[in-house]
């Protein structure tokens, strides 16, 4: 339940914090972090223009995508505090509801018949496919390490100690951050601050959405970020932590994550599109390192 509250609060301001961080790094004053909330409220109140080419799939997709991210959030615990919904092998469900969200957003983009959105849809599908093995190798290794298969049990049992396990947590955190960045189409694979048409993955896919739907999509991407933020927090929470301290750590991690994302977008250029697949596949090889360090920690292979 704590996860849901944290994600809902930070989901709304996450993009605001990123923008604020970007404006500060860029030497501007910029809008306040809470501005992202007012933006969404404004979008919810606005009317919308719907393309004559589109069908009901186009209108249904943002709602499905939103529900998918909510369901994914329900599976994430907050350190030792269990998730709303938890059962064995729920890691698979997590990956698959996000895949469903991707599926419907892709067909919604193709529904418009626009070449730009087709291109974005294609890349979204491709990068989503490439990033998935890293996720499964990472959480498969953690399940091997902890002897559990649901997020709640895994994060409860994840006791770190010794050099290899810190390295493992570091690698895992890196993979989660990069997965979050790729899934949300931020730097280094895509740059959302360029003009819409040039932002060739997520932003171009949603060109035709307006009004309520666009608001829903914005909320969804904020929630997704905050959700990965909580997942990241879980790697660093000690197992018998007092709730207020856990919350404090959680908030710090969320802010750090958002500011890092903003910083990255201020100081880095995005990769060439053709280089992106290579970059994303590296994540899987890093996840393999986690797997082998688990094997070493469990004395299955010698060191």
């Amino acid at each position: 339940m704590i996860t849901v509250i944290v994600v809902c609060v930070f989901g709304l301001v996450f993009l605001g914090i990123i923008n604020r961080a970007k404006s500060v790094f860029g030497g501007r004053i910029g809008p306040r972090a809470v501005q992202s909330i007012w933006d969404v409220v404004r979008l919810f109140k606005k009317g919308s223009v719907i393309s004559t080419t589109t069908s009901s799939i186009f209108q249904l997709a943002p709602s499905i995508s939103f529900v998918c991210v909510i369901v994914a959030t329900l599976l994430i615990p907050f350190g030792p505090y269990p998730a709303v919904m938890h059962f064995d092998y729920d890691v698979v469900l997590f990956a698959y509801v996000l895949a469903l969200s991707r599926f419907v957003m892709i067909i919604a983009a193709l529904d418009t018949g626009s070449p730009f959105q087709g291109m974005g849809a294609n890349r979204e599908g491709l990068y989503g496919m490439l990033v998935e093995p890293a996720f499964f190798v990472l959480f498969g290794s953690l399940s091997l390490f902890t002897g559990h298969t649901s997020f709640t049990d895994m994060f409860r049992e994840l006791h770190l100690g010794g050099g290899v396990s810190y390295m493992m947590a570091g690698l895992a955190a890196y993979i989660v951050i990069q997965t979050a960045m790729i899934e949300s189409s931020r730097l280094p694979v895509d740059d959302p601050k360029t003009h819409l048409e040039l932002t060739m993955i997520h932003e171009v896919m949603i060109l035709d959405h307006s009004g309520f739907d666009l608001g829903l999509i914005t909320v969804t991407s904020g929630l997704k970020f905050a959700m990965y933020g909580v997942m990241l927090t879980n790697f660093f929470l000690p197992h018998n932590v007092w709730l207020p301290i856990a919350l404090a750590i959680g908030i710090v991690v969320q802010f750090a994550f958002a500011i890092t994302a903003g910083g990255l977008e201020s100081f880095r250029a995005r990769f060439k599109m053709t280089r992106n697949p290579q970059f994303i596949i590296t994540l899987t090889s890093i996840a393999m390192l986690v797997y082998f360090s688990v094997l070493i920690l469990m004395h299955k292979i010698g060191m």
Binding site: K45, V49, I50, S51, E197
Partner: peptide, 12 residues
């Protein structure tokens, strides 16, 4: 309560 319009797909 909002105005819903139909139009062509945005061609940039």
């Amino acid at each position: 309560n909002t105005i819903i319009e139909r139009g062509p797909t945005w061609g940039c």
